[in-house]
């Protein structure tokens, strides 16, 4: 006979040893900014690729008194964000939830940094599909480890060079390789280039969790984060200019600073709107 356990799952889902190990590896990641710390990633009740790496960091950190926000693609209300939030409610019943970035102590995110920015004491946990930026030029992990150790990133830079030769543009759109405090180059997770400068000399702590690839790394506060570029071909964020050269506003809130998603409205017309749903909603409210 299968007996249902008295309380099916304990606080924070993971067993305490697992949480302790993740915290320990996270500390190591903070101590060596940009270094990918291997850890024994556990299977989560969400599929690999749905944020299991971020979730393990989040669960190892969350406790009573924390306020939590979850973002998927900038939105609080997308299916995946709702699903993650639902899981946190079950796993950590005494944690308060919020959609306001500035009220959260811990934010778990996929593909975005909140438009309002991060403040001291806050932690942004980013979900990472591919932790190693060198994988595009070197498939062998043992060799990549040595290249990271020696700070040998010439082959990544050659890729940028070849991009300029072939396309006249650096074609890396997101996951833009970024050098942390002058040594390790990280994959900052699939955030758009728009968000990369927010990692630089920030007030908050950024933690990166790759569940399937079993790595944790960090960009601590007040740490340099510099996207790879050439002196004469600087790094550029996405631009949202219309044909006249003017910055497009968000169709909903009118912001001219935010990262925009492109979509078709019900008449089939191309429109642009903020990808950060909470930022956009609050701007719309204040305009009313």
């Amino acid at each position: 006979m299968i007996e249902a356990p008295a309380r099916a799952y304990q606080y924070g889902f993971l067993d305490e040893y697992a949480k302790k190990e993740i915290r320990r590896q996270t500390l190591k990641a903070v101590a060596i900014p940009g270094y990918q710390v291997p850890y024994a990633s556990r299977e989560m009740p969400l599929a690999r690729g749905f944020g299991t790496g971020g979730l393990q960091i989040t669960l190892s950190l969350l406790g009573p008194g924390d306020t939590f926000k979850v973002i998927d693609q900038g939105a609080d209300d997308s299916v995946n964000a709702v699903n993650l939030r639902k899981f946190i409610v079950e796993a950590c019943p005494d944690v308060s939830l919020t959609t306001r970035a500035e009220d959260a102590t811990i934010i778990q995110t996929r593909h975005r940094v909140p438009e309002v920015g991060m403040s001291p004491g806050q932690i942004l946990v980013l979900q990472v599909p591919y932790p190693d930026p060198l994988v595009v030029v070197e498939p062998n992990e043992a060799k990549r480890k040595q290249m990271h150790g020696e700070g040998d990133y010439a082959r990544l830079l050659v890729k940028l060079y070849e991009d300029l030769v072939n396309f006249g543009e650096i074609t890396i759109s997101h996951r833009y390789p970024t050098r942390i405090h002058g040594h390790y180059v990280i994959d900052p997770s699939p955030i758009p280039r728009h968000d990369v400068p927010r990692l630089h000399m920030a007030d908050a702590l950024f933690l990166f969790g790759a569940g399937r690839e079993k790595r944790i790394y960090a960009v601590p506060p007040f740490t340099r984060a510099e996207p790879l570029a050439f002196e004469d071909v600087p790094f550029r964020v996405e631009h949202f200019f219309d044909d006249t050269g003017a910055r497009r506003p968000c169709a909903r809130c009118g912001s001219r600073e935010s990262f925009l998603d492109e979509f078709l409205d019900s008449y089939g017309r191309k429109q642009f709107g903020c990808s950060d749903s909470d930022y956009c909603a609050r701007r719309q409210e204040s305009r009313r």
Binding site: A154, L157, Y161, E231
Partner: peptide, 11 residues
């Protein structure tokens, strides 16, 4: 590649 290995960073 050899120049980039040698910290030259001006395209």
């Amino acid at each position: 590649e050899r120049l980039l290995l040698n910290e030259q960073a001006h395209y």
